[in-house]
Write a protein that binds this DNA or RNA. Structure first.
Lengths: 112, 112
DNA sequence: GCATGATACCTCGCGTTGCAAGGTATTATT
DNA sequence: AATAATACCTTGCAACGCGAGGTATCATGC
């Protein structure tokens, strides 16, 4: 009964967060802006998306958090764990397979 | 209050259906299998997804339907309308922009 | 000194959506 | 006669994304 549900298109915010955090520790507010900037405004995930995902990823052991004060600003930095790296690989693989499949339908490739 | 909501990742079943129907008239049961086959089992949308989407697309004027009997089988064939072709172009464009944006984050492209 | 805006965190509640599950009917196969 | 395949359909749930709102701190402008 505790199976992995979720629909076939979900999990992209999770994927993006894990990928960004892989490069360096980041905090929520920073991730919101990083996603917006790196996607040139094509993707604009708000805090209502980011924070809950961060909490879930930490709960699942994919991220670890540490509160730090920088420039008089208190921030919660998240770092990728080994389990998180594994999860990132899985999600990236799924995403790649999914987009390939969709692409092959969109371009009308010859279907054996 | 009757605005267009929906989240940034949705609408892929719609896109796939419109794209397939563009090539030739198709019926629901056929679409279920076509998506499964053309995606080599990467995407398996069931009838619980396909039929409601077909009804919505027809209601919105993107598809037109006609009941036909072929080989003693009664089927509801759907054809793309001009409005549907427009909608397909829009969705395909959005999808392309979205996947490009995600890809640029995943590969860690240099961000100005 | 006070207001405004940026930074930084958080949660509640809603609407869509995808989907499994169930249901009907007809035709083909065994 | 029974089973499987074809073909249509709807109901109800869960999860996800997200807007909206709330708190607090710090910097800036007037």
């Amino acid at each position: 009964m505790a199976e992995n549900n979720s629909n076939f298109m979900s999990g992209v915010p999770e994927l993006l967060i894990l990928r960004l955090v892989r490069e360096k520790e980041m905090y929520g507010y920073e991730l919101v802006q990083a996603i917006r900037e790196r996607s040139r405004d094509a993707i604009a995930l708000g805090e209502g998306v980011i924070y809950p995902v961060l909490h879930a990823l930490e709960r699942d052991g994919a991220l670890s958090s540490s509160r730090k004060t920088v420039n008089g600003r208190s921030r919660v930095y998240y770092a990728l764990t080994a389990a998180g790296a594994q999860r990132l690989d899985d999600l990236a693989g799924n995403w790649s397979r999914l987009t390939d499949a969709i692409q092959s339908i969109l371009v009308g490739v010859q279907h054996a």
